[in-house]
Design a protein around this nucleic acid. Sequence first.
DNA 1: GGTTGGCACTCTCGCTGTGAGAGTGCCAAC
DNA 2: GTTGGCACTCTCACAGCGAGAGTGCCAACC
Lengths: 369, 369
Amino acid sequence: MVGERTTSGHRALSFRPALGLSERQRGVLRAVVEDYVSTAQPVGSKMLVHRFELGVSPATVRSAMAELEVLGLLSHPHTSAGRVPSDLGYRFYVESLMRESAPDRADQLMIRHQFSQVQLTTNEWLRLAASILATSTRSASVVTPARARRARYGHVQLVELADRSRLAVLVLADGNVVQRRLDRAALERTATDPRLDQAALDTAAAALNGDLSKLSAPQVRRRASQFTPLAAHVAEIVAQLLEEADGAIVEDVFTDGLVNVLEQPEFAGGGKLRSVMEVLQRSDFLEQLLPVLTRRGGVHVIIGHENANDAMHEISLVFAPYGAPGRALGLLGVLGPTRMPYPRAIPTVRYLATLMDELINSHYGETHD
Amino acid sequence: MVGERTTSGHRALSFRPALGLSERQRGVLRAVVEDYVSTAQPVGSKMLVHRFELGVSPATVRSAMAELEVLGLLSHPHTSAGRVPSDLGYRFYVESLMRESAPDRADQLMIRHQFSQVQLTTNEWLRLAASILATSTRSASVVTPARARRARYGHVQLVELADRSRLAVLVLADGNVVQRRLDRAALERTATDPRLDQAALDTAAAALNGDLSKLSAPQVRRRASQFTPLAAHVAEIVAQLLEEADGAIVEDVFTDGLVNVLEQPEFAGGGKLRSVMEVLQRSDFLEQLLPVLTRRGGVHVIIGHENANDAMHEISLVFAPYGAPGRALGLLGVLGPTRMPYPRAIPTVRYLATLMDELINSHYGETHD
DNA sequence: GGTTGGCACTCTCGCTGTGAGAGTGCCAAC
DNA sequence: GTTGGCACTCTCACAGCGAGAGTGCCAACC
């Protein structure tokens, strides 16, 4: 498993004054967050004592709210509206107020069952994981395939398509497959025999496969010259492919549940929708997420302005890395408005991360090191 | 090229009365459509004579509009609002009024240049095509990879991943790659030698590759028993993979420009957004599109209610097939509100379809048959 | 007969004003 | 520290109204 799975955020340091909250304040803050998350309406003191049986009068709640406001945990859309949690308020809630509502035994079995139903294809796993995350947290979900930080040679194959076009299929050591059509002219130039039949290509591929196993891009490039011209040419292309695969963790992203977030009232009107969509489609936020997630395992929660990206100031992320330690790494998580059901999202992300860990590891083999 | 590329829709038959429009009516209809497409506002008679120099008075235009309305080509949101084209109106416009605004020489060169910049990877082509379609038509775009209608065996390879896990990589005859992790236990059961080293697997793969080239799923299955137990087991899996790939034209869909359509005023509020998104994400509308597109080549335009799918009654599609005739087939096109810039979208889709034809064919080789 | 200007009519849309409702903050009393 | 009371504030929904845009019809004109 990838480190221990703990819950915490990446810029959580910025809060501190709120640490010494009274029991009353904690109760009120929790109630405000939970009410607001479920209703999307600013919450007032009266409503609050009604819905949550706090055992005190609205007036008391009001004074607690006022205190929470000066601490920066709640905010006030306008004078006579109810309170709304601030990013810091959510942070505190996630950090020390929240009672996680993990998927129960039955849910877990259901999820496992779904995975067992599906074909043994990584893409199917990813698609399924994204779908489960999206439906059970009612947010948008993102899942990337597990990739080695460093792309390494696994196996190459030169396939003849219909007619005489060639395809290089490179299986990386981590099991991912990349491919590239080959320029016929360039290929023929390197061949000693201008007929360039499949046998010649097979020989070249076999030479590379025997010699380059587990090597990285620069290593492959260094050895390229030791082969026959044809094999060297292919090795050069392989090196290119490895370079492209290096660090391309966020290629082939699987997304689901976009509607869930587009439907949220906070994105109803105006240009917010555009910015959210653009962030999500380009998914470069994952690049920024990567170093944070790899530095420490477990579920990471990033709330609103804690996000470096301006376009994501109203968005929260709940993400975790998964994979085989030191070998292949993937990302998965959910994304939604800051008003997000954290108690649900966090354990769900955690559970799916461990599940994906298992799947990956059981197929990488039990021989850990 | 896939047949001749003509412009027409698939239920175009339903209009006929409108064929005998007067020159005046045609001019007015065209003006209404073009104004409405660019402004999204119902268009009135006065505005119309202002913006388009029709050389007649508003009153004349009004009577022409009234005539067009009884013909069902225009409609009326309410008594004192301007006119809006009906689906039939758009249909007539596309059919016989529209002046196509094809990408000019410079645009075409630019597009070609972009393709030449990109790596020789099918996925990159598809991604690029989707991006070009989306930006130049300002709609959402969809592009699927070219696939053979019938999946045929190309080449199989059994790769050892880190540790002893195995991956079957099957390259189809059309160049697409599918993969499947192998269940180690099942594999070992079939092997005569329990050590099951790479050499044994290579031998099995070589046997299949020599014998199964170009065969379809049932053919592979029929021959499976003639191999050694290990090879037969793999052949069985290959047959499964072929079956799954059969008719799976709409897997791996590339989409771009979703924002473009979500931002349109017609989808601003209400549940329309949800239905549109769901249709688009699930992309099963492509399945329904497939038979229509294959029956006849060229650009197909499907407008609003011409669409079988209820959720797409306010959506128009402009799609074309592309590929190597009889060998591999892909779909590409754009999707937006019925208020779509057809004169732009249609030639752009047509151009990209021919371009993809070229790309595919140049790599399948010039040896047509 | 097609075209035009005139005219009455209709419907939307944006503006304003108003009252209800929800919520706050403060204070005095417990 | 907690509570009830009370005055105050702000939003929101709704009604009313006038401007504006557009239509349909008709009689007159070329």
